[in-house]
C-alpha cells in the first residue's frame, strides 16, 4: 500500500513538471496557432545550463536555475522574432521550421554538452516522513512546490495582468483585439519566450532528480503535446489536469506494467482522446 502511495506521489511530482512544460506549449498554441517542436530542447537546455552554471561556474544552485531559465527566455524571444514571425499565417512552415530547429538544437546540445546525463546539485537534502506511511525525498517535495508555485504565477499572469488581458483578447477574437490596439507582435513574442522559459524551468527543476540528456528531448516534447491534446488545445486548466493524469498513469504503468514502455501510455492516451473526445477534457468543441 505505502509502495503504491509512493508511486502515486512520484506521479504527482512528474504531473506538476508535465503541467508547467505543457503550459508552455498551450500558451503558444492558444495565441499563435504554432506548435514548437523544439520544446523538448528548451527543457534540456534548462537542465544543462543550470548544471553548467552550478557545477562549472560555481554559482549557487538557485541562482543558476534562475539564470538558465532567463537565458532560454531570451533565446525564445530571438527565435520568435527571427524564425517564427516570418511564417505567420502559414501553419505548415511554422511546423517545419520548429522541427528543423529541434534537430539543430539537439545535435548542438550533443556537441556542446556531450551525450552523458547530467545532474545539477540538489537544493535541499534528506527526506520527510509522509503521514507515517513512507519516506519521501525533500528535493522531490520541493520540486512539487516549485511547480505549483509556477502554475500559480502563470494563472495570475493570465488572469490579472496587462499581458493576460491581451492574451485573452487575441485568443478570442484576433481582429477585435487588433482594433482595440493590442500589440499582437509584442504579445506573440513574449508568449513564445514564456513558452520556452516554462519548458526550461521544468527541465531545471527536474534535473536534480532525473538527469537530463540531449537524446531525451523527443520524449519531453511528446509528453507535453499529449498533455495539451488531453487537456484541450489552448486550455490552461487542461494542462494542469492533463499533466497530473499523465504523470500518475505513466508512473503507475511503469511501476506495475513495464518500464520500457513508459512512454507508450502517453501515446495510448493520445489515441484514446482522438477517438473519444478529440477536443480534449477542457477544450472547446468546434
Amino acid at each position: 500500500m505505502s509502495e503504491f502511495l509512493m508511486f502515486l506521489t512520484n506521479g504527482l511530482v512528474m504531473g506538476g513538471i508535465n503541467a508547467i512544460s505543457a503550459l508552455g506549449v498551450s500558451l503558444v498554441v492558444g495565441i499563435m496557432r504554432v506548435i514548437n517542436f523544439a520544446h523538448g530542447e528548451m527543457y534540456i537546455f534548462g537542465g544543462y545550463l543550470s548544471y553548467q552554471l552550478a557545477v562549472g561556474a560555481g554559482i549557487p544552485p538557485v541562482l543558476s536555475m534562475l539564470c538558465s531559465v532567463a537565458a532560454v527566455f531570451l533565446g525564445g524571444l530571438a527565435i520568435e522574432k527571427w524564425l517564427i514571425r516570418p511564417t505567420y499565417g502559414d501553419e505548415m512552415y511554422s511546423l517545419i521550421i520548429t522541427f528543423i530547429l529541434s534537430i539543430i538544437l539537439q545535435n548542438a546540445a550533443l556537441l556542446i554538452f556531450g551525450p552523458y546525463p547530467v545532474k545539477p546539485p540538489s537544493l535541499v537534502f534528506g527526506a520527510t516522513n509522509i503521514f507515517g506511511l513512507f519516506h519521501y525525498g525533500n528535493q522531490r517535495l520541493l520540486s512539487l512546490a516549485l511547480a505549483a508555485g509556477i502554475i500559480g504565477a502563470i494563472m495570475y499572469l493570465v488572469r490579472r495582468t496587462w499581458f493576460g488581458k491581451s492574451v485573452r483578447a487575441i485568443s478570442q477574437d484576433r481582429e477585435m483585439a487588433a482594433m482595440l490596439g493590442v500589440d499582437h507582435l509584442k504579445v506573440n513574442m513574449i508568449s513564445f519566450g514564456l513558452g520556452c522559459a516554462l519548458a526550461a524551468s521544468a527541465g531545471a527543476i527536474i534535473a536534480p532528480i532525473f538527469p537530463v540528456t540531449p537524446s531525451g528531448s523527443g520524449a519531453v516534447s511528446l509528453t507535453a503535446f499529449v498533455v495539451v491534446v488531453l487537456g484541450g488545445m489552448g486550455s490552461l486548466k487542461g494542462c494542469i489536469a492533463g499533466g497530473v493524469i499523465l504523470g500518475v498513469l505513466e508512473n503507475l504503468g511503469a511501476a506495475y506494467i513495464s518500464t520500457d514502455y513508459r512512454h507508450i501510455f502517453g501515446f495510448i492516451i493520445l489515441i484514446g482522446v482522438l477517438v473519444l473526445r478529440p477536443w480534449g477534457l477542457f477544450g472547446k468543441r468546434i
Partner: peptide
C-alpha cells in the same frame, strides 16, 4: 482517419507520437 479532421497540427503531433512509439517497440 483519427486526426485529420481536427486539423494540420493534430496530424503532426500524432505522427510524431507514432514515430516515437514505433521506435520504442
Amino acid at each position: 482517419g483519427l486526426c485529420i479532421r481536427m486539423g494540420g497540427i493534430y496530424l503532426s503531433l500524432t505522427t510524431l507520437g507514432f514515430s516515437e512509439i514505433l521506435r520504442i517497440i
